[in-house]
Design a protein around this nucleic acid. Structure first.
Lengths: 259, 259
DNA sequence: CGGCATTTTGACAATCGTCAATCAGTGTGG
DNA sequence: CCACACTGATTGACGATTGTCAAAATGCCG
């Protein structure tokens, strides 16, 4: 299996082949974590960069009444703290949801690397930009979409993001999250997640077998969710460039990645 | 009136006195915009930095069904695009809500300034970090809070943010937004905003006269909304440093700015 | 004054949360 | 092997919050 960090650096963060090659030659310490273990807590100031290499983690906050809000899912290749703790303490927690493998890259290593290959700084910057676009999309969806479309949208997003790092075929991906963990991200109760999942299955928008999601008709699911992957800023691996779709569109247009 | 950009650079973005002084000596072109005018559109790649100097603007997205989602309010001192369009096209729109004065700082000016005063780069970085924390807070609130608490929380946030830039006394601030514009940010309908506002007034959590909000008891409103200003990362101007409040708190602790 | 945007009101419906219970799967210990 | 406990999924009844629709009231501006 390819290194998910390298895959992301190339396809999401715009790092060139050469830099990726150099980076992948570094020996980076990895460690395994059980499910539901905190990686960072509120108030921590991480000194090294931690990247999820396998499994699914999340950012979350505790609300005053004891509810939990998940504000991001971290998939392989995602940085737990793209800012490297440079300026601030964490204002939220980061924890594994499933068992995970994480890589810890010492800050010194990164600084040396950046000095020689400045494009890595740009890549980190890019990573936090993309986090921002995902946050804005989640926020907009949570405010305006019904629970079924919102869940459908999340599944569309996860399908794409997981596929990029080789954790899914085109129509299938494993999603080992509980309904509780989905609900905390969508802002709906576990029970409602259950109802909504059933409705999606009834309409054959998805099929679920043993925590594996199968999407019989991707276009139909994406249409239902009004999903447009532009906000994920994933560059196409293939050479079909879809030149037509570029440029300014007046209404509701989203934009593919610039060349 | 003080320059709001300077105020923010000092109190939010951690820029030092000297750098602020140098920056404020720059002659920066300002222009006036009527209410509800787009500043950036989806797909634009801004080449200069645009800062709101007066008035209130917002980031927004159009949803597939024609609804609008506001994902941020931009107050005086906020950057319309903290990343300076360096890498990507805008994936959302920025528009004025009220009439605004905006400052356009040529990218070249910023680059020269950063070369001589690297801390400005840090300040810009900081600005986008804070945007991220606000986004996460909005997302968590939208998911978990009832509409009244959510609106109350937004009012708490705006009270603090407006006070920083001198647009409000302790208990009062002008909020020239329509209920529609509030609802688009909260993810609730105009009619419901109206109902909720009434409830807040009935409970004397707020009083509204001619688009000016008066908060009779800040602590009570903030308690109701479970508001903790830490996520705004605003440094205290006065010299009482609240040293006690620092350090790691176990539960629901937010953190004041590091010295 | 008239026209327009915005706020307010009321009745009603739909979505979603709450509570309580059952069911299914998994692992543990006897 | 079975009893047991535990977690997570599912079901149903009910209630609360919020959305929808339609209309009236208010305020603003030419």
């Amino acid at each position: 299996m390819r290194n998910p960090l390298i895959l992301r650096l190339k396809r999401s963060y715009g790092l060139g082949e050469e830099d990726c090659a150099k980076l992948s030659s570094l020996a980076i310490e990895q460690q395994h974590l059980a499910q539901r273990k905190d990686i960072f807590r509120e108030g921590d100031r991480p000194s090294n960069a931690i990247v999820v290499m396998e499994g699914i983690a999340c950012r979350y906050k505790w609300m005053g009444d004891g509810k939990r809000a998940i504000t991001a899912y971290l998939l392989p290749g995602d940085f737990c703290d793209p800012h490297l703790g440079a300026f601030r303490r964490m204002d939220h927690n980061v924890a594994t949801l499933t068992a995970c493998t994480i890589a810890e890259i010492p800050r010194a290593t990164i600084e040396v690397f950046i000095k020689n290959n400045p494009s890595l700084a740009r890549a980190l910057w890019q990573a936090s930009l993309i986090e921002g676009t995902i946050l804005r999309t989640w926020l907009a969806n949570m405010g305006q979409l019904s629970a079924d479309r919102q869940l459908a949208h999340l599944l569309c997003e996860l399908r794409v993001r997981l596929e990029v790092v080789g954790m899914g075929e085109k129509n299938t991906f494993r999603l080992p999250l509980t309904q509780q963990e989905l609900g905390d991200a969508l802002g709906i109760t576990t029970i409602h997640v259950n109802r909504v999942l059933q409705r999606l299955r009834e309409n054959d928008l998805i099929r679920v077998i043993e925590r594996t999601v199968f999407v019989p008709d991707i276009a139909r699911l994406e249409a239902f969710a009004d999903f447009n992957p532009g906000y994920l800023h994933i560059s196409v691996e293939n050479t079909d460039q879809k030149g037509e779709a570029r440029g300014h569109q007046e209404e509701n247009g989203l934009f593919l990645l610039d060349a």
